[in-house]
Design a protein around this nucleic acid. Structure first.
Lengths: 353, 353
DNA sequence: CTGAAAGCGCTTACAG
DNA sequence: CTGAAAGCGCTTACAG
């Protein structure tokens, strides 16, 4: 980096374009462009002149002009409910790996269950800001409409994690079988002797949550166990929401002996509220979570939960998106179900009698 | 939305540009452009024709062309160590609020303490992908070099949270006084009677961590307390790192009665390891964290920690960046220190004697 | 109030 | 192997 020695601070050139490089090198702008994009096609001596001129001028291409000209941004937009969710952190890791390998930058967009954000996302899809989109969140009806109606403008989209709504069914998607996983978790609770199982769920706007609830209900039904009114509590999908929901469960006249939470984050809230009520996990109330985030293992007691292969979901999602962007996606296999797994730790015990 | 009734699915127009709209409306492209950007300057009947044509054609502007032409992307890049960190989730919230209010979209980029990523970031700064950048992470030496050397190309940058390295001192920055906060936390521990205080720190690449360590050492020194070799443990700034670091503290021949963790996430790891060793928080070992993330309150016991005004940091950072982008930043006040606060919960007790 | 035209910085056939 | 030229889709003085 010996060009640093030339005190580059001094020259506050507002702009150095390909033209300037061409001038300095004594070649045409086409040649400069070729040196950058297809060096092999330029003779060595010419290339050397250009390289030198690039260094001398401190040129770097205007990415905006390139994207515009090429009609490609090499940016992939990822839409998710919340970047703070540790589960999505892992999904993002997988996404990032494949993105980087394929030369894409990642643009992250949170919906935060917010309609305004959904509108922006709709606008983005229609614009050419990104080459493709990974959809990890439920869309508002508006977003869904945009996706369906203006499909002729929209960039390729792959859906991840989230169960798909009928309108979006034609988009490829990668997720676990949420209903089956929830059923498995509930079955486990039942197999441990629980007959009163509560379900702490998130916003009903999320199909994924609905699927989990469906699995829970199916398990209860199959075991011929009734679900009392008030055992299924819908809260905000965060800690305060879970605390509130758990409180109503703890105070229920027929208190559940076990609580199945729609995700690990809510399980953290549930733990807190159970303990605050002077009860113990799992002795008084067993808890099962969903996601197996990095916190599950250090919770006290360690949380029994459903593991989603988060990183793999991210990788698969992005892999398929890349294919779609390259126009190489094979039609047909739109839906890809990845395996989940019940991770048994120490948050479930047999109920006291 | 009655245009939905016209079955837009049918027409798979690959591209509809401003030209097409102009043709349909029977006006020039300049007029179409004006209708979009400065409607007042167009006569009502003309505007109506254009509006109708836009609806009819399903036109939406090519954002890439606009950005290129205007030399402005309305995108702000946020660089942070990890989106998964709950502290940054809150900072991002503040950033997002101000960004939205000012018409900017947010592009998030994780460094993950990774040099490759830092290179990409350097490239981004030099490109015109974003109008400005918020830097919430320590830069690699390379990144720092890029920032310093090619400053004449670089977009406006504001640093947040992170203490600034000498090379970056000319950039505006917003953060708490990390050393003072760490000293306050340690002083609190000392005031509770602790004489053996350990420090679980993160990677030494982070100036911020170093500042916190400095505050801890200053407090110990002021209280005339020695720091045994092995009481300051440097781990990875995550849960496994904290577990490992805490283990060595728990097994230390002169075991600390209190542990100060460089952030709340590490405190979670510390809790886990302390409990795994059959010890209790705070009876056997007191713990103090840093950040006051949303988990601090639901930890068992609730964590005593330093609160950073995360959202405010995000807001202030972005506010100043917007000013800088608009060319309105007043020089001079580059450094902005925001207040921190010690939040006393129940993870600290007097040491057993 | 509206249009014709220049130009933003690139890339890429098309000639030579 | 290299250059002149067209053109990507916009915006914006400049005329009229």
């Amino acid at each position: 980096m010996d060009e640093t020695a030339t005190k580059p601070e001094v020259s506050i050139k507002p702009e150095v374009s390909i033209k300037e490089v061409a001038r300095v090198a004594g070649v045409s702008i086409a040649t400069v462009s070729r040196c950058l994009n297809d060096p092999e096609s330029v003779r060595e001596p010419t290339r050397d002149k250009v390289t030198k001129a690039i260094v001398e001028t401190g040129y770097s291409p205007n990415v905006l002009a390139q994207s515009f000209r090429r009609g490609k941004t090499n940016v992939i937009m990822v839409v998710l409910p919340s970047v703070g969710d540790p589960f999505f952190t892992d999904v993002l890791k997988g996404i990032r790996t494949v993105a980087r390998a394929n030369g894409y930058a990642i643009m992250i967009n949170e919906t935060q269950f917010n309609t305004l954000a959904a509108d922006e996302i709709g606008a983005m899809m229609v614009s050419r800001w990104a080459d493709g989109m990974v959809l990890l969140a439920s869309l508002s009806p508006y977003g869904t409409e945009v996706l369906s109606a203006r499909s002729h403008r929209a960039i390729p989209i792959v859906v991840g994690c989230e169960t798909i709504s009928p309108e979006l069914a034609r988009f490829p998607s990668v997720h676990i079988d949420n209903a089956a996983a929830a059923r498995e978790a509930t079955d486990y609770l039942i197999s441990m002797g629980h007959k009163r199982v509560g379900f702490v769920s998130g916003e009903a706007t999320s199909l994924l949550t609905l699927d989990r609830e469906r699995g829970y209900r199916a398990a209860m039904k199959a075991a011929k166990l009734g679900i009392e009114s008030g055992w299924v509590v819908q809260g905000n999908m965060n800690i305060p929401g879970a605390i509130k929901a758990t409180r109503s469960l703890v105070n229920h006249k027929r208190r559940p002996t076990a609580i199945f939470c729609a995700n690990d984050e809510m399980a953290m809230g549930a733990y807190h509220e159970i303990k605050s009520a002077g009860l113990k996990v799992p002795e008084d109330i067993s808890v099962v979570g969903f996601d197996d985030t990095r916190y599950a293992e250090v919770m006290d007691p360690p949380l029994t939960t459903i593991r989603q292969p988060a990183e793999e979901i991210g990788e698969r999602t992005l892999y398929r998106l890349c294919k779609a962007i390259e126009g190489k996606s094979e039609p047909g296999d739109t839906l890809e179900i990845v395996p989940h797994q019940l991770i048994v730790r120490r948050s479930v015990a047999k109920p006291r009698r």
